[in-house]
Structures are given as C-alpha cells and as structure tokens.
C-alpha cells in the first residue's frame, strides 16, 4: 500500500485529473483574462492590442471606484459580523441545552441557493407588500424607505442578507474549532478561579486564532468578489448605487459588449484580492511567544 502510494508515477496519476481541471478551469482563464485585458475587444470579431490603455481608463473611472468602495464596505461589514458569529459560537460551544438544534437552525440559510435567498429577501423588501414595510407601518413609521429602490438604503439592504446567508458557515467553523480545545484547559482555568469571560478571551479565542485568521481572509476575499445576490436583487442599480466590482465587471463585459475592459476590471479585481490577502496575513501574524 504505502509502497504503491510512494511511487512517483502513481502520485502523478492521482493528482492529474484534479490538476488538469483546475488548470483548465481556473489558471488558464486567469492568464487569458490578463491577456484580454490588454485588448480592445467586443467579445467577437477581431481584437486590437491597446497595451495598458484599459488600465489607465480604469484608474480614472469614477464608476469603478464607486463600486470598489461598495465592495470594501461589504468586506468591512462581513468582517465585523465575524465578531457576532464568534460570540454565538462561544455560547453554543458551552454546555447549554439545545445547542445542537440551534446550531442546525443557524446552518439552514447555507443550504439555500443564492437565487432563492435573493427572491426571499426581495419579497421581504417589497416597498408596498413586503414584510419589512408592513411591520414598519404597523409600528407607526409612516413613510418607510422603499429599500431596493432607494439609493441611500440599497447597499445596506443587500448587506443584511449577505451576512445572514453566511452566518451558518462561519458559526460552524468556529464551533468546530472551539470543540477541538482540550477540555482540561478550561477545567484548570476554572480551578484557578477564572470567570467565563476570562476563559473565552484569554484561553479559547487565542487558541483558535489561526482559524479566525482564515475566516477573516475568507470573508474579505469573498466580499470583494461578491456577485450573486446583487445581480439577482438589483443588478447593481438603481443607477449603480449597489454596484460592486464583480457586477461592474459583468455589466461592462456582457451588457456593454466591452470584453476588453471587462477583463481589465476582472484582472484588477484579482490583483486587489491578492494584495488584500497578503496584507491580512502580514497584519495578523501571531508571534511565536503569543501562541502558547
């Protein structure tokens, strides 16, 4: 067994299918996107090489920076929401009754397809028949905003379901990490007279710091390239008020037939994600001494 698995040819045989797929579907398209980004191209017909012209256009494109701002705002709120998820997981990982059931309830939104979540929240936000405005009117608010149609509210109206959608995922990760902490540590701390709050902040959180770091990267990068709910719920509107980088890229390439520029936006988005990931890793380095 071990003999067969340590054979180089066998290793190659086993990793080849996945490697082939990931190369063909991820890495080759990335390289191609970078290439198309240097072209003036309508998606069909001839391409014209324009060098970095698309990038200089991108730098001056205020609509792009507006959508980038929205993306970063979404990332900020996603990261802030992680604190909430962590709190919930800390409580769930403690010995409370029904923790199992509650954990499953939190997980359910994860099982729904994005489009269904979008449809659900569109019904909630419906300006005259929606659940939310019904409640607001009952509470005596006379002129509630028409959420998805209101440029001042639309972004927040979308951030809420995005956070709701991923709650179960992060809670599950934190919960699993917390369950991995040896029981003895907590018992020892208790004997030493530590309060539950101290146990949480001094023992549990530092011990799962590595997991927290990963979730921060996941949340930030996931937010920066976020697309689905926004595409279904508003399409980036009204007039770009909920446009994010990915939907902007889509609109440029597929609605305006500007595949060259669309590719530039896509490639730039990739670069931003890489830089941000690198920065987060740098900023959250845990010095060896702190680790134990």
């Amino acid at each position: 067994m071990n003999h067969i698995l340590s054979n180089k040819k066998v290793i190659l045989l086993y990793i080849a299918p996945a490697l082939f797929l990931i190369l063909a579907l991820v890495y080759v398209p990335i390289v191609l996107t970078g290439y198309y980004g240097l072209m003036k191209w309508t998606g069909f017909g001839g391409m014209k090489f324009v060098g970095l012209e698309n990038y200089s256009r991108l730098i001056q494109d205020s609509l792009f920076w507006q959508s980038a701002y929205h993306s970063f705002l979404l990332a900020l709120f996603s990261v802030l929401s992680l604190i909430g998820y962590l709190l919930v997981s800390l409580i769930l990982a403690g010995k409370i009754k029904g923790a199992n059931l509650i954990r499953k309830i939190y997980l359910i939104p994860m099982l729904l397809a994005s489009v269904i979540i979008a449809q659900l929240w569109m019904k909630i936000y419906h300006p005259s028949n929606g659940l939310l405005n019904h409640i607001l009117i009952k509470l005596g608010i006379e002129n509630p905003p028409s959420w998805l149609a209101d440029p001042e509210w639309v972004l927040f109206a979308i951030i809420v379901p995005v956070i709701w959608q991923y709650a179960g995922f992060y809670i599950l990760i934190y919960y699993a990490a917390l369950k991995n902490i040896p029981q003895e540590l907590e018992e020892v701390a208790k004997i030493d007279g530590a309060t539950p709050f101290q146990i949480a902040t001094r023992i549990k959180v530092p011990l799962i710091m590595n997991v927290i770091k990963v979730t921060i990267v996941l949340a930030v990068v996931g937010s920066l390239k976020y697309f689905d709910l926004i595409y279904v719920m508003t399409g980036g509107g009204p007039n770009g008020a909920s446009e994010v980088m990915a939907s902007y890229m889509y609109n440029k390439a597929f609605n305006e037939f500007d595949f060259g520029y669309g590719s530039t936006v896509g490639f730039f988005l990739l670069i931003i994600c890489l830089i941000v990931t690198y920065l987060i890793r740098k900023l959250t380095v845990v010095r060896p001494n702190d680790n134990n």
Binding site: Y125, H126, P127, S146, W147, L148, A149, D150, T234, P238
Partner: peptide
C-alpha cells in the same frame, strides 16, 4: 407612479 418603482 407606484411606490418603490425603481426597485420593482
């Protein structure tokens, strides 16, 4: 127009 037309 109906309320919230820009989002409908």
């Amino acid at each position: 127009f109906n309320k919230g037309f820009n989002g409908l």
